[in-house]
Design a protein around this nucleic acid. Structure first.
Lengths: 203, 203
DNA sequence: TGTACATCAGTGAACGCGCGTTCACTGATGTAC
DNA sequence: TGTACATCAGTGAACGCGCGTTCACTGATGTAC
């Protein structure tokens, strides 16, 4: 009657999810083969189906896990920042990811939105639920914008940030990339009333 | 010494490109197999390599072709619109694509930026060159924004638009989608000084 | 005007390969005695 | 305390399939005579 400790299998599962999130972002969903994901997690192919019913199930869950890890990283250390400083830090941290060499730390919003758009209703609803929770957790801490609900401020801000980072990563040169990031920050600063940038726009 | 007319082969090539652009946007680059693209163009697999050296070459070129077709559609009929009306029409037309059922008319920026980000330097540079030309053709016709170069206004606007449409398509419901579109328009209206919306935000 | 035929855009079968998935198996685990 | 053994997380080989690519071929084209 011997069993492995109860945390063993869930921990392995979590490791597979982290590996999957990383490879999906770096290579796209089709580039992240089950074999590559398992190798990245230090395992072999065969064991995969003891943890997930299919590759698609893995991808769906990895997307959600990635979103939460990204938001946690964004908000870390800003628990007591007042609205203007909070918004400025969020914007600058978010845009800064476009200058990372790799994509492991990238927010899924900047790399996986088209995949979600092509996915079926069930996936899109789960995704929407999580992003709604993410937006709700942040909207009250953004500066008030006359004539806009706090939720709309947060939605428009994330849309602009995700678009700017995706656009910047597609630029051919560091100069082009930084110009896009600086322009996006300037646009956001105009209506979010952000204090001057501390780093966006120059590497 | 009989030959087909000189326009025959280039016309077929163009048909393959249009088919490829459509399938790449609808299914993603890996979902658009050579066989599916050729069938969509009314041909069979075998003839493909008489037109393109590889699938990758097709994808790279289809992206550029798609960008140009999208910009042409956006600016159609606005040749003599004054800056505020031009900007408002551009914003509303761009956001409206998120409410289309299919993805054939989608702007590549809203569906393919992550693929470009993962591509090699050569692809990114070609892409950057075309978007730069696209932005340059439009920047002078946007409203002036104090403290921002016209190019930066255009870059920030496209980044926000592309992000908003990608985000909206990933929403789980039409209501969620329309809320994102309306929020994005409100944010843009604040710093671009757009006239009130004629249609964004409600289907 | 009619016809033979060189050209070449397009066909369709075949190839090797990597993928997602399955399954009989192995061997580390830790409980029962 | 020591050991036998039931459990089950993980292994690795195998499967069918669809992919990108190749190539010998076909047959519509339209010029030359």
């Amino acid at each position: 009657m011997a069993r492995y400790s109860a945390e063993h299998k869930p921990r392995t599962r979590a490791r597979i999810l982290v590996a999957a999130e990383r490879l999906i972002k770096e290579r796209g969903p089709q580039g992240a083969s089950v074999e590559a994901v398992m190798r990245e997690a230090g395992l072999t192919v065969g064991g995969f189906y003891a943890h997930f019913p299919s590759k698609e199930a893995l991808l769906d869950e990895a997307l959600i896990v990635g979103l939460e890890r990204s938001l946690a990283r964004l908000a870390a250390g800003l628990e007591h920042a007042p609205p203007p400083a909070f918004a400025a830090a969020l914007v600058d941290r978010y845009l800064a990811q476009a200058r990372d060499d790799g994509l492991e730390r990238a927010c899924p919003l900047t790399l996986l939105l088209p995949e979600v758009a092509r996915a079926d209703d069930a996936v899109r609803r789960r995704f929407a639920g999580r992003t709604a929770a993410m937006v709700a957790g942040i909207e009250a801490r953004l500066p008030a914008v006359p004539g806009m609900a706090p939720r709309d401020v947060a939605l428009a801000m994330f849309a602009s940030l995700a678009g700017a980072v995706a656009f910047a990563r597609a630029a051919g040169t560091p100069r082009g990339r930084d110009r896009i990031l600086a322009a996006a920050r300037a646009g956001l600063a105009r209506w979010l009333a952000l204090p001057p940038s501390d780093d966006a726009g120059s590497a």
